[in-house]
Design a protein around this nucleic acid. Structure first.
Lengths: 230, 230
DNA sequence: AAAAGTAGGATCGTAGGACAACTCTTGTCA
DNA sequence: TGACAAGAGTTGTCCTACGATCCTACTTTT
């Protein structure tokens, strides 16, 4: 007999796989910002038909990582200050609301679990696991709101954040920086949530997010100025 | 010379038109909850190819109004209590956050404008314009957050609300009800926003949304019990 | 008669070819 | 230098085809 796992693995259409694959290629920087997604070459490269590729891109459209322009095809989005601002304001809103919620045991458990993972990955000192653990932790925070919609929404936000990290080479610079007290910051937040100090948690989260935002903004600004003179 | 309007009208791919059309058919109740979207017949009916139809459905997927099941095709979503709850919790969060924001003049202007429209439509006593004006007003509220992402997100939420209204025949029942003080409630909210009484505005919005939610939930519960005995 | 099995039709998932419409680039000409 | 035209490349859309899968109704088995 086949296990449920077998089934769910089978149950993915090419379009969905394509969407995930392209997303991975984008957030990993293989497909760079502004790059066009040429249908025939990508289809050939992935060994699928143009039809399926296009369906996949349509799925990807909702992620905001690519944008279709009629007769010009899909293009990987280009970071702007305005968009980064929007992204972080959205993030800020979701997370500050979340920590002010009275948490359910399961959601709280998930926060604890991801926090443990974060601690472990920080010890390993490898950048990628830290980034992923960090994102998972914040996802768990939003999970406190216990809304499928909002969690799914934040999932997209996360993808966009990784995209910005990659484009701006932010991760290596900040996460590998021993002066950046990632663990301390997150410990404070978890503590505040545990103790039900909601206002405090909210302020800590705000400070944390705004600090990241300020740094990213700075880097992006430099980048934009650079490319302007080019 | 062609005007910009000409261009933007041209500049819609079939898939986008299809997506909008299907969405309209769904929120208007032409395509009922649980109904399958048969590709060949729909494509013929809309005078387009199956390819384009499928692309359109992929675009629609993000709206949550339809769901693809592999080898079973797209199906119009079925309302559940759980989902209605999720929907309204999300709505509540966005709107209460929004009215606590310090509003920009433009965003505030939009709130006033949609409020005027609401007043006018209430006078006309026609249900559909009232519903639309109501939704537009709440969209303007979320606009106070001045985030493109959150506004787009709320746009989806709105569509889902209309869907629930239609499925539950909620609009005719509630909006046409002269005892339901739609205008009074909204006037209070606008007043509170105008005067910068943010906490009060937040409470008024909460009360308003929760009242709607309670009524919708009641109706849905009845419906589900009915269909269970069938 | 209920459960299990099976055959056939309908529908989906995907491929691949075709072609008009459009964009972009390049080279020509004023 | 700038306008314009030709050509190559790419997208938007349609069409046909066919295996895989689902669904229904009929047949066989217990």
């Amino acid at each position: 007999m086949s296990t449920p796992t077998d089934i769910s693995l089978q149950r993915r259409s090419t379009a969905e796989v394509v969407s995930d694959t392209l997303m991975r290629l984008i957030v990993e920087g293989e497909l760079k910002a502004g790059a066009p997604l040429r249908e025939s070459s990508l289809a050939t490269r992935l060994g699928i038909s143009r039809n399926s590729l296009r369906e996949g891109i349509r799925l990807l459209e909702q992620s905001r990582l690519v944008k279709y322009e009629v007769h010009r095809g899909a293009v990987v989005s280009t970071p702007t200050l305005k968009d980064l601002d929007d992204l972080y304001r959205t993030r800020l809103m979701l997370e500050t609301m979340a920590v002010q919620e009275i948490p359910s045991p399961e959601a709280l458990e998930e926060v604890e679990r991801t926090f443990e993972q974060l601690k472990e990955s920080v010890e390993s000192k490898e950048v990628e696991p830290i980034v992923n653990a960090d994102l998972a932790f914040h996802h768990a925070i939003v999970g406190l709101l216990e809304s499928e919609r909002l969690s799914a929404f934040y999932e997209q936000i996360s993808k966009e954040m990784i995209f910005y990290f990659t484009v701006l080479s932010y991760a290596d610079e900040e996460y590998a920086n021993p002066d950046e007290p990632i663990l301390a910051r997150h410990t404070e937040i978890v503590e505040a949530i545990r103790r039900g100090r909601r206002a405090e948690a909210s302020e800590l989260v705000t400070a944390h997010i705004m600090a990241n935002f300020a740094r990213l903004k700075e880097i992006l600004q430099e980048r934009l100025e650079e490319s302007e003179t080019t």
